[in-house]
Design a protein around this nucleic acid. Structure first.
Lengths: 151, 151
DNA sequence: TATGAAAACATCCAACG
DNA sequence: CGTTGGATGTTTTCATA
C-alpha cells in the first residue's frame, strides 16, 4: 500500500515532533483532528508507523561510553530469543541479526567503561550467548536520522 | 547536572512509546504525572531530550537494505578525514571510529542490495580507505532512541 | 471510503500546599 | 513532590458527500 501525499506529510510532521497535536498537524495538512488521527491509526495498523520514540543526546544523559558487541549465539537460537533477552537491558540502543561470522550486532550505550564492562558480562552470561567480541567507539563522526548533537 | 535513576527510567519509558501519558509513566516509575512532566521539561532544557519522533518502517520510505561497513584506513588518516569523506553520502546513517582491527564502523541505509553495493564500492574507492569488510542486517531486533523498525 | 462537527472522555499544566 | 481544577487534547459517535 503506497502512502499518498497526505500520509507522507503527516509522517513528516510526526517525524519532526511526535507530540504535536492532531489538530495542529491537521492545520498544516488541511484536515481536521479526527481525520489525522484516523490516518495515523491506519498507518500504525499497516505497519508504516511502528511507534513513537524520544530523541536523546546520549552524552547529556550521562551515557558517555558507546560500543558494539558482536554476539555469537548457541545453535537453535531464534531472533525472537535474542530480542526478548536483550530488551530487558536499557543499555541496548539497537540490535540486529547480521550476515558474517557473528549472529547479531548489538549497540550499547553505557555511563562509563565500568558500566560497559558490567553490561557486557551480563549479556555474555545470557543462556543463548556462546561468545562475544566487542569494540568500543572512540569518536562518533556522523549521526544522522538519529539523536544527538551534530558532532 | 547528573541524571538519577528516575530520569533514566522516564527516558526509557519514552523511548518505548513517546506518546505514553505522564500519568502512565508516573505509575511505572512511582511518581505523579506533574512530577514526570517537570522532569521531562528539565531534560529538554538540559538538552538530554532533543525531541520526539516517529518510528517508521524504512520499507515505507524506500530504505529496505541496511548494513555495516568496517573500514580499514590508510596510515595518517584522521577522524576528520573520515567524517568529511563520508558526509557526502546520504546513505551513511552513522559512523564512528572504533577500537579493534578496523578503524571505523559505518552504518548504511540503502534502497536495495544493488544500491548498497554501489555505495560500498564508492566508499571502498575513497582515497583514505585501504579495505573494507561489510555485514548486512538480516533482522532489526531492537531500535531505541532512534527512528526505525520496531522494538 | 473518507470527511467534519460535536459530545464525552482523558490528559495536561499552572497554581497552591 | 502531590493535589486540584480550568484549559486543552483525544476519541467516539454520527451525519454527510
Amino acid at each position: 500500500m503506497p502512502l499518498n501525499d497526505l500520509d507522507e506529510r503527516i509522517v513528516h510532521a510526526l517525524a519532526e515532533d511526535a507530540r504535536r497535536t492532531y489538530a495542529d498537524i491537521g492545520a498544516e495538512v488541511g484536515l481536521s483532528a479526527p481525520a489525522v488521527k484516523r490516518r495515523v491509526d491506519r498507518l500504525r495498523e499497516q505497519g508504516a508507523i511502528t511507534g513513537f520514540t524520544v530523541r536523546v543526546d546520549p552524552a547529556a544523559l550521562g551515557w558517555r561510553t558507546e560500543g558494539f558487541i558482536e554476539m555469537y549465539c548457541r545453535s537453535h537460537t531464534t531472533p525472537g530469543d535474542i530480542r526478548r533477552g536483550l530488551s530487558r537491558y536499557p543499555e541496548v540502543a539497537s540490535a540486529s541479526t547480521v550476515t558474517g561470522d557473528a549472529d547479531a550486532l548489538v549497540q550499547i550505550l553505557a555511563a562509563d567503561m565500568h558500566h560497559f564492562e558490567q553490561v557486557l558480562e551480563r549479556i555474555a552470561g545470557e543462556p543463548f550467548v556462546e561468545r562475544t567480541r566487542s569494540v568500543l567507539v572512540l569518536s562518533p563522526l556522523l549521526r544522522r536520522y538519529t539523536s544527538g548533537p551534530p558532532l
